[in-house]
Design a protein around this nucleic acid. Structure first.
Length: 822
RNA sequence: GCCCCCGUAUCCCAACCGGCAGAGGAAGCGGUCUUAAAAACCGCACAGUGUGGGUUCGACCCCCACCGGGGGCACCA
């Protein structure tokens, strides 16, 4: 390297090497539980260790680090942990392929990822790291399961469930996307199985209501997605007496249209259908159900599919009209929503109308909306209108009143009542796979489902590998006979262990608590410490977890609060979603061959330049198209900033009050604004402002106050500290060249002299008819009267007003005067 | 089909409570330096804010409609 190069650039690779070693020794990001400082908890969704870090990790870690490092600089004690969500299918599939244990793949990848994180200069506190597949962690996952079981929140039931034929395991509703497996994309089918569930529906109301408290600090789309998913609706339960003596309750959001009900439909695959069907129709029903079961969810989801069904042979009495209604079974009614049965009002529900047409059932309009009669138009009407043929509702014109009145009628007749219903279902948590936390339950022929006693936790996974793990539709754990066969903790007789493992979303539903006391082997977490650190002040992650993980973690927190273990009911006070890193307008993928390898980018431009590029690209939530980015430009800027530190000739601690005022103003303004820019997640603007400061400082050195002015030192030190949030290596190198001890990361936020923020004069714009006619330099505290007088006295303004009458003068001191004339 | 977010210069993006459309970067063009090039430094351009209405003294910003892009929900009674 020539002398000239040394003045203009630094060597990225050697600088990275150098500081990694220094930081290792400093250990300056370790969170102290007993610190007297105010505490902050910065959390990023922990990754699944699938190989090495990629561009997506690089982005989220860079964004996350800005906040964590900012908090340190502002004087907070910061908990900034990282670990790995290390149970899950990819490790298991790799193990099958390579005939090895999933731990080999998992822990190898974890090591690689940690090394990459260190190189990437993340400020994580590795002393708190753990992996969900460690027995010391999943012991407590199992313990929590037992606590849920004690509280009646974990239970087993037989039910049709989502089944992924490729992964050979059941899936939660949340893991089925458009009828496909969220993970592998295979078409999901239904199976009747006995599975474990968490009773998340018990918390549906609270999960929904508390979204309002999160709305100011959570992204809109997450709030909306959760609201939709929980799917609260209000209506009524209506009881129908059947011709066979049974009473069947339906759920409806339109009890006001009960007078227009002309038939009833029950879910074909429900128990209710088989109970109701008359003997002469039962064969037909069975055949129909068999056909329905064969159809995949994909087919079921097609809304334009012709309606099908079977007449069950029974009739139901309409509680308000006394009419006898035929009862049908169909697959357009879902067994697990509402009561699995509906009253059909074809005039005012398109689905019912389609079914009525198909089956030639009567259509009776009871709300006259002014539109054509649905019986003729075949278009159901759902809007407001005048009630007709509806007994006590006749003549009403408002839907809400109609609904209210109908519920009163039903309640008086003891044939129904107002009801709310949720779309949210219970969380199916059993999985027929190996690499997860075993469900800590023993099945005894005498005592039934017996929880494993707490002192026998963890229930360790049996050692299986390679071919033993091949999916065969039942849990691989079943093959480990010596593990399965055990004794009943209650009666001591022979019994078998549950062979399913837990959904990995269980593992990730409580890891943020564990970080507060990560190595405590006496409890899942230390409540006092958790209450000290939590809720997390910021949670950063991908919007793909808007419902899944975030809903589950919220549910867990509420249960833990009810158990008295934590004193808050929401785990994440604020949330930020980062966008994707894409390339040439498309998501990066192997099949498209448009992937950008993080390792290559880091090697070419260095860690700081890549971090800077990702942070500067735009608002954090926006996708970043790597093809539009210029890491090269980022590197040039960093070198430019670094060069400033070599130009400073004043000594550390020089008296800045004598420094160049203009530059001092820019510095003060930049540092002052940086605070709200970071706190508003406007990191891209922050970077732009630092660039501005660098430009101003360059100019001051070359053609202004010169390198010896203390204001230059003040400016460059501010640049180093602000850059420490984004480009830790460059900032550290600058700090050292400025004559300071490491680390700049803990240097503290630059002091701002408030007096410097007050401008000595501002430019006021004078408009005539909205057109700018003059600019006046005025005092910032000029009065409206004085400003107006000055404006009207201005030569250019006078000229513009010639021959016109001033009609109105709007004054917004000190920035603007608008004169309306004509 | 219903709901939410976003459309600013060639590109990525700023613009405070409704008050001069431009902070920053990329690409481009020109200059200084250089034998030359790169780097560095200096400078120059480039849009009237997707479209059409409305409110206002004044609209990128608020309201309505439409177009385009992204996302959520969707046979949930």
């Amino acid at each position: 390297m020539s002398d000239q190069d040394e003045r203009t650039t630094y060597d990225v690779e050697s600088v990275q090497q150098k500081w990694q070693q220094v930081w290792e020794k400093l250990d300056h990001f370790r969170a102290d539980d007993d610190s007297p400082r105010d505490k902050r908890y910065a959390l990023t969704m922990f990754p699944y260790p699938s190989g090495d870090l990629h561009m997506g990790h690089a982005e989220v870690f860079a964004l996350h680090d800005v906040i964590a490092r900012y908090w340190w600089q502002r004087g907070y004690e910061v908990l900034n942990p990282m670990g790995f969500d290390s149970f899950g299918l990819p490790a298991e599939n790799a193990a099958i392929k390579n005939d090895e244990h999933p731990a080999v793949y998992t822990y190898g990848n974890i090591e690689t990822s940690i090394a990459s994180c260190r190189n990437y200069a993340t400020s994580f506190d590795w002393s708190r790291s753990f992996n969900t597949s460690d027995p010391s962690y999943y012991k407590w996952t199992q313990w929590l399961f037992l606590k849920f079981m004690e509280r009646g929140l974990a239970y087993r039931k037989n039910s049709p469930v989502n089944w992924c034929p490729a992964d050979q395991t059941v899936l939660a509703n949340e893991q089925v996307v458009d009828g496909h497996c969220e993970r592998c994309g295979a078409e999901v089918t239904k199976r009747e199985l006995t599975q474990w569930y968490f009773r998340i529906t018990e918390y549906a109301d609270e999960l929904l209501a508390d979204l309002d408290t999160l709305a100011p600090t959570w992204p809109d789309r997450v709030i909306t997605a959760q609201r939709n998913w929980i799917g609260k609706s209000e209506g009524a339960h209506v009881d129908f007496d059947m011709s066979n003596g049974q009473r069947v309750t339906v759920y409806t959001t339109r009890p006001d249209t009960l007078w227009g009900a002309t038939f009833m439909v029950v879910a074909a695959d429900s128990k209710l259908a088989t109970e109701l069907v008359t003997p002469d129709r039962s064969a037909e029903l069975a055949a129909y159900v068999a056909e329905v079961r064969k159809a995949s969810d994909i087919d079921r989801l097609a809304t334009d599919r012709p309606k099908t069904g079977v007449d069950l042979g029974v009739t139901a009495t309409n509680p308000v009209t006394g009419e006898q209604l035929p009862v049908w079974a169909s697959d357009y009614v879902l067994a697990d929503y509402g009561t699995g049965a509906i009253m059909a009002v074809p005039a005012h529900d398109q689905r019912d109308l389609d079914f009525a047409r198909e089956m030639r059932l009567p259509v009776r309009m009871v709300v006259d909306t002014g539109a054509e009669d649905p019986a003729v138009s075949f278009v159901a009407t759902t809007g407001h209108g005048t009630y007709v043929n509806s007994g006590p509702l006749d003549g009403l014109t408002d839907k809400a009143t109609g609904v209210h009145r109908a519920i009163e009628v039903l309640e008086a007749a003891q044939h129904g009542k107002g009801a709310v219903n949720f779309r949210l279902r219970d969380w199916l948590l059993s999985r027929q796979r190996y690499w997860g936390a075993p469900i800590p339950v023993i099945h005894c022929p005498v005592d039934g489902e017996v929880p494993v006693p707490e002192d026998q936790l963890p229930v360790l996974l049996p050692e299986l590998k390679g071919a033993d793990l091949k999916p065969k539709g039942t849990s691989p754990l079943g093959a480990a006979r010596e593990w399965v066969e055990t004794t009943c903790p209650t009666c001591g007789g022979p019994a078998e262990r549950d062979t399913d493992t837990m959904d990995t979303f269980v593992d990730s539903s409580w890891y943020m608590f564990r970080y507060c006391s990560p190595h405590d082997d006496t409890q899942a977490f230390d409540s006092a410490k958790v209450n000290e650190w939590m809720p997390c002040d910021i949670y950063i992650g991908g919007v793909e977890h808007a419902v899944l993980h975030l809903l589950y973690a919220r549910f867990f927190t509420k249960v833990l609060a009810d158990m008295g273990l934590v004193d808050f009911r929401e785990p994440f006070a604020a949330q930020l979603n980062q966008g994707f890193v894409i390339n040439h307008g498309k998501k990066m993928s192997k099949s498209l061959g448009n992937g950008v390898r993080l390792g290559d980018q880091l090697a070419e431009f260095g860690v700081d330049a890549i971090r800077l590029t990702l942070v500067f690209a735009g608002p954090p939530e926006d996708d970043i198209d790597w093809a539009n980015m210029s890491p090269d430009g980022s590197l040039r800027f960093l070198q430019r900033a670094w060069r400033l530190s070599g130009d400073v000739t004043s000594e550390p601690g020089a008296d800045v009050t004598t420094g160049d005022l203009a530059l001092r103003r820019v510095t003060a303004r930049t540092v002052h604004d940086a605070t709200e820019l970071v706190e508003g997640y406007r990191f891209n603007v922050l970077v732009a402002r630092v660039m501005e400061l660098v430009n101003a400082t360059r100019k001051a050195i070359d053609s202004g106050c010169g390198p010896a002015d203390p204001a230059v030192r003040e400016a460059v030190e501010a640049v180093a500290i602000l850059l420490s949030l984004v480009a830790p290596y460059t900032a550290e190198e600058m700090w050292e060249r400025l004559g300071h001890e490491p680390s700049v990361a803990r240097a503290g936020w630059p002091a701002v002299d408030e007096a410097l923020l007050v401008e000595e004069s501002v430019t006021a714009v004078v408009q005539v008819q909205g057109k700018v006619r003059a600019r006046l330099e005025v005092a910032p505290d000029i009065s409206e009267v004085d400003l107006e007088a000055a404006a009207l006295a201005d030569e250019a303004v006078v000229r513009a007003l010639e021959g016109k009458t001033v009609r109105k003068v709007i004054v917004r001191a000190p920035k603007l005067v608008n004169i309306v004339a004509g």
